[in-house]
């Protein structure tokens, strides 16, 4: 269990950061998750994925014990915080792009951010993400569709349909 926890610390921290937009809250979530996992290690079922179990614990701690307080105290300018994480490597083009994309991901609502992380970075299937977040699979599909559209718009591409509609409106004036 301890070795397994050590393997997943960075992923847990990233999950906490994407949820909270605050590195210190992210660290606190990691530690609380470690403590709870150690306390409840007898509940972990061998043969199942430890990372998914740990993510469930972190999600539960965030929702039930931390989220309201963090939001109430005004922490979590998520877009800035996510981008700052990789700002150290600004001179590298890929880091500039990563930083821009993180800013845009950070501007998504929390539910979309979380779903994007789980499916696109952590490899959750739609069904697994739905189970993890306790929502219908259609909600996962909807969150990802909206998120992809926003990210595509923000990173330069504009939808053909929208451009046509804008041009049509302008021509009618």
């Amino acid at each position: 269990m301890r070795d397994g926890l050590a393997t997943h610390l960075a992923a847990l921290w990233r999950y906490g950061l994407v949820l909270s937009g605050n590195r210190d809250v992210a660290e606190d979530l990691v530690q609380a998750t470690c403590l709870r996992a150690l306390e409840r290690r007898s509940q972990f079922q061998p043969g199942t994925r430890l990372d998914r179990w740990l993510f469930s614990i972190l999600h539960s701690i965030w929702i039930n014990e931390v989220r309201a307080r963090v939001v109430r105290q005004g922490a979590g300018f998520v877009d800035a915080e996510l981008a700052l994480v990789v700002d150290g490597g600004r001179e590298i083009e890929t880091n500039i792009l990563a930083s821009q994309m993180l800013t845009e991901i950070g501007r998504l609502p929390e539910a979309q951010r979380e779903t994007v992380l789980l499916v696109y970075a952590e490899g959750y299937s739609y069904r697994e993400a739905a189970d993890h977040l306790n929502v219908p699979i259609g909600t996962i599909m909807s969150r990802l569709a909206v998120a992809r559209e926003k990210l595509a718009q923000a990173t330069g591409d504009r939808p053909a349909k929208e451009e046509d509609e804008t041009r049509d409106r302008d021509e009618r004036r």
Binding site: W13, R14, V85, N95, M101, A145, E149, T155, D157
Partner: peptide, 25 residues
């Protein structure tokens, strides 16, 4: 268009992993 919205998501999120405070964790 929708594909472009997802193209850089993974490398961007993986950049967070690289920047994680490993020793502190």
């Amino acid at each position: 268009f929708l594909d472009s919205g997802g193209r850089l998501v993974l490398p961007a999120l993986d950049a967070i992993l690289d920047a994680a405070p490993h020793e502190r964790l």
